[in-house]
Design a protein around this nucleic acid. Sequence first.
DNA 1: TTGTATGCGTTATCAT
DNA 2: ATGATAACGCATACAA
Lengths: 340, 340
Amino acid sequence: MKFEAVTIKDIAKALGLSTSTVSRALRDSYEISNDTKKIVLDYAKKINYRPNPIALSLKEKRSRSIGVIVCEIANSYFSQVINGIESVAYDRGYNVIISQSHESYEREVLDLQYLASRSIDGLIISISAETKDLEHLTKLHDRGFPIVFFDRVVDEIQTHKVITNSQGACDATTHLIRKNYKRIANISNATNLLITKSRIEGYKKALKDNGLKLDEALIEYCPHGGLVYEEVEKALDKLFMLDKKPDAVLSTTDKITTSCLRYFKARNIKIPDDIALIGFSNSELTELLSPPLSIVRQPAFKMGEAATNFLLELIESKRPITNFETKVMDTELIIRQSTR
Amino acid sequence: MKFEAVTIKDIAKALGLSTSTVSRALRDSYEISNDTKKIVLDYAKKINYRPNPIALSLKEKRSRSIGVIVCEIANSYFSQVINGIESVAYDRGYNVIISQSHESYEREVLDLQYLASRSIDGLIISISAETKDLEHLTKLHDRGFPIVFFDRVVDEIQTHKVITNSQGACDATTHLIRKNYKRIANISNATNLLITKSRIEGYKKALKDNGLKLDEALIEYCPHGGLVYEEVEKALDKLFMLDKKPDAVLSTTDKITTSCLRYFKARNIKIPDDIALIGFSNSELTELLSPPLSIVRQPAFKMGEAATNFLLELIESKRPITNFETKVMDTELIIRQSTR
DNA sequence: TTGTATGCGTTATCAT
DNA sequence: ATGATAACGCATACAA
């Protein structure tokens, strides 16, 4: 069942005017007499005329919509980022079209194909944990398509980016060291992601700064970003099978943090008595856990806002931008009782 | 900086063919020779041609995108619904454009204006807690615009709807009664919402079926859907100031449940010793709380899927549909330790 | 001040 | 088997 809307043509016909007069009257052009304007405007209002954005898009070669690709919407971090994106986009008159990669490279490529062509004016993306080949993105970027990365960014593409620094992981690790934990495990996202490297780096820096020896056996990676519980389970199994078991765990993504909690609970491993846990998380419920969970919180909403401002700058700039910026934002370390 | 894409015209010019030949070749029309097809297809692939969906939309008078209005994305229930919507939409070749009402009637009207006209083919909506006047929706609906309601539906508009039954609240209340709680408070959403009426009804039914007297003083409403913590705080303050205080609380939305937990924690009120709590929630973390929270879980993902299937049926139907369906889905009662 | 014609990218209709 | 043209809704250069 199609929904037939009113067009300029309808108004013109009804009023015995030409479409161009109506068009100009609606846009309050100086060339149209006040009388005509009033007649047109009144009638347009009466029949609830709305310009067809698709026709406008075709004409202006811009859709006023931006695409967003994240791994999962139902993840507190990403939903908060989307919230930030949506707030800026809405204010500036843009639609937000959201796609989920579900941590699948293949799906990410499909999403991009779907969003690209010209139905979106630009893209905000946090790449999937599986993504190693960037051709789908470089191909667009090289042709001048505006792309902004956030969270899981890539080095190979020169554009605006929004990330958090490695200080979050460093602070969390330092905190654990100060609390006298000696064998601090680190469970992170896929190895290929820059964000993983950055968080591992923060972790290593803290160890080094505090004179602790790095034990590579204490670092575990989740190739699917912790999307499947089993990979976190496997990682923890391995850690607990070590001769020298960890006495604390730093988990560096929302999803992995939740899985760690689930793992400990299932095995009746007590936090912080049996093991300490600090995790990256943006869930509002972490403070209500028992014990309340120490976390590293990312400024998700602000990251979404920043990414969108960057993207709209790229989209609306008259001339190609070559001077790109990477906005590095601070995380917030919230100490609660899961780390004694 | 604009992104210039390849058009049929470019291909036609490059290959010395007419646009119609190219168009037909790309669509594998029987009237085009295999040789020509191959030449066109190869060249199109080489230069990475993609049809312009906006031009298609203008021609077909459909945008292949659907609008979604929810109060908040960053809410486990709604993000899971959106996940379901997105999954069906994606499979059927539709974009999903998301807007948030933030529980504001005014914002909902703006969102709708923004989405309407012809940039979306249909709408999936869960109305804001503030919404009483439905003119913004009826106006569209009366003109044949496809709308599907879910979760917070309305009686006044005849169309497909997806809801959960009142059994969830009834089951939860019955469970509390069986556990020997006598004074069961109910904290619900705004009074004007049907979903509130339904859940209160389930609650009352359980009391009645079990021979308990209804005490209206034990029912509290949150006009802003619990979006502001203070209204939940006020509701609980009132309940705890009663001469006969409640010994259990049933909270009927995600947001309110979280606020209850926060309130009890802030005041060191122990669950379930000081008071029992069971709440509607779709968060994955509730089982990790201490005590693990008894919940009523809604089939959020499935509700999103069902709503989208309904909407696409309305959109793609050749003739006006007058036979509307309301899909009533079951909730899941998960008993954990917050209710002894 | 108003009207006519053109084009945005695509496809359907009608030639050739 | 292929090409020319009109149309979708709108804005605008150009005419009148």
